[in-house]
Design a protein around this nucleic acid. Structure first.
Length: 156
DNA sequence: GCCAACGTTGGC
DNA sequence: GCCAACGTTGGC
């Protein structure tokens, strides 16, 4: 079982949107970065846990937890000409982009702010605290996971 | 395969 | 809205 952090803009799709979905489940699609794609395709497995991170908003930070309920499958949007994520160069026989499905697990009472995370001297390697790190999907070590969860003061 | 130009990300 | 950092594109 592995841990991850997924970034999302809450104005577009936040933790509340996920909680409101049928079955509280949603495809994590539209990822168009190769490094993140590789995680989605190869490494993110059913049962893995995800820190749901809110970016580009008022309260930047970790808003809750989700769980992977379906692992790597081709992102349907890449074949949909109506979608802004349409990729004319992607071939259905060898899809370029992948999705996983995530299910709502928990919304923290308070967003764990990026500021607080950066202030924790034990968390220096996590992508979001590193300057210029723009990956929308990144691994989280078990140690980081327990530190972060402890900071929220909440249990899963 | 280099690299300049361009577009995007994302904190502030 | 600014702008630094980064990824991608495409001419050569």
């Amino acid at each position: 079982m592995n841990y991850w952090l997924f970034k999302s803009e809450p104005d577009v799709f936040g933790i509340d949107h996920l909680a409101d979905r049928p079955n509280q489940t949603e495809p994590w699609d539209g990822v168009r970065n190769y490094q993140a794609r590789n995680f989605l395709r190869d490494d993110i497995k059913t049962g893995d846990l995800v820190l749901f991170y809110h970016s580009s908003c008022k309260q930047v930070g970790i808003a809750g937890v989700a769980e992977v309920v379906r692992e790597g499958y081709p992102d349907a949007l890449q074949f949909n000409p109506e979608s802004k994520y349409f990729d004319p160069k992607s071939n259905p026989d060898a899809p370029r982009w992948f999705s996983v499905d995530v299910k709502f697990r928990k919304k923290f009472k308070q967003v764990l702010s990026l500021q607080a995370i950066k202030a924790n001297p034990d968390i220096t390697e996590l992508g979001i605290v590193k300057k210029g790190h723009r990956l929308s999907i990144m691994p989280v070590t078990p140690h980081e996971w327990s530190l972060l969860l402890a900071m929220t003061g909440e249990a899963l």
